[in-house]
């Protein structure tokens, strides 16, 4: 261990302490911290973290309010927002009825989310999980995302085990199964059937402990539910996510760049709106895909960096923030992947 490279280091714990577990591990690796001292630091950091968590732990009411605020912040999605509010009202009133000694409907809150990719299904599922936690329906309010490969195994018995494990992980939260219809893809002999049976059983036996959300394209999901009445009869809520309009996509783009402390030039914003309008119903973008917008912007940020570094400094704050239409270049390479 060379002491010259770290002249400030001293074994006196008051002087310089690792600020995170990650830093502790880095210091162990570099030889700056003997393993036994690392154990002490990790313990200190762990108890500090527990303390802040305890003091900032939000109350149930805060959770509900923050989940709804986050929902309202989402661009577009009006029908989705309305349905989620309905859900909240329903759960609220059932709880009040129970308090009043009235019969309360204890039916499960499993849901189907239909819509094209990139229309906010996962985002809303995460919000719903926290909302239901705040309303006291779910104990943990976490979201476990899964797809066919997480459920379906490779040999007899494997699927049941994988499905069970996934359900176990999701207990107290939401199990979100994307492209759920693919479970029925392989026909009668496919192991997907076994996964569907496992899900149906969990929906019935574990209601109140877990909410399952099945998601996918509208047409495929309709077929999937029609052919699996066991699933359909246990779904309480069907939420459809409409495609984003070009205006909404531009608003999303504006929001995304602002979050990253960038800005679209005026030209870029106008051209993007025009481009989206033109491409509507033509390219994959016709599905109103917010993920496409994110990829576009992330690539634009890289292209802006290249442009600026080729140009040479010094840079104004504005130049460092602005993304031009040329940076966006939606028809440029590496972005279109027609589905």
């Amino acid at each position: 261990m060379s002491s010259t490279s770290h002249p400030a280091w001293s074994p006196d714990p008051g002087l310089l302490q690792p600020a995170s577990s990650k830093e502790v591990l880095q210091w162990v690796e570099s030889g700056r911290l003997p393993p036994v001292e690392a154990l002490g630091h990790l313990r200190r950091l762990k108890s500090e973290a527990a303390l802040t968590k305890a003091t900032t732990r939000s109350t149930a009411g805060d959770l509900v309010a923050s989940a709804l605020a986050e929902l309202d912040d989402l661009i577009g999605l009006q029908p989705v927002k309305a349905l989620v509010r309905e859900l909240k009202a329903f759960v609220d009133i059932q709880a009040r009825r129970q308090e009043a000694g009235l019969k309360s409907d204890q039916h499960a809150l499993h849901m189907v989310f239909t819509g094209s990719p990139g229309t906010g299904k996962t985002t809303v599922a995460r919000i719903v999980a926290r909302l239901l936690q705040g309303l006291g329906v779910l104990a943990r309010g976490h979201l476990v995302e899964a797809e066919r490969a997480d459920l379906v195994g490779e040999y007899i018995g494997h699927t049941a085990q994988k499905t069970r494990e996934l359900i176990r992980r999701a207990l107290g939260g939401v199990l979100f199964i994307d492209e759920a219809y693919s479970l029925a893809r392989g026909g009668e002999k496919d192991f997907g059937r076994e996964a569907i049976d496992g899900l149906v059983k969990a929906m019935e036996d574990l209601r109140g402990q877990l909410v399952i959300i099945l998601a996918g394209y509208p047409v495929e999901m309709q077929w999937f539910l029609a052919t699996n009445p066991g699933l359909r009869s246990r779904i309480a809520l069907h939420v459809h996510f409409p495609d984003y309009t070009p205006q909404e996509l531009v608003a999303i783009a504006r929001h995304m760049v602002r979050e990253r402390e960038y800005a679209l030039s005026r030209e870029a914003e106008l051209e993007l709106a025009r481009f989206l309008e033109q491409q509507r119903d033509r390219l994959p973008i016709h599905s109103g895909n917010a993920r496409w917008v994110r990829n576009l912007l992330e690539r634009a940020i890289r292209r802006q960096a290249v442009r600026l570094s080729q140009h040479g400094g010094p840079f104004s704050r504005e130049a460092l923030m602005t993304l031009t239409w040329n940076d966006l270049d939606p028809q440029g390479g590496g972005l279109w992947r027609p589905s």
């Binding site: 261990m1 880095q26 162990v28 690796e29 570099s30 030889g31 003997p34 393993p35 036994v36």
Partner: peptide, 13 residues
């Protein structure tokens, strides 16, 4: 005690 070998330190971390 402290470990001189980088490889073991990495494994410990």
């Amino acid at each position: 005690h402290g470990v001189p070998e980088g490889e073991i330190r990495r494994a410990v971390a």
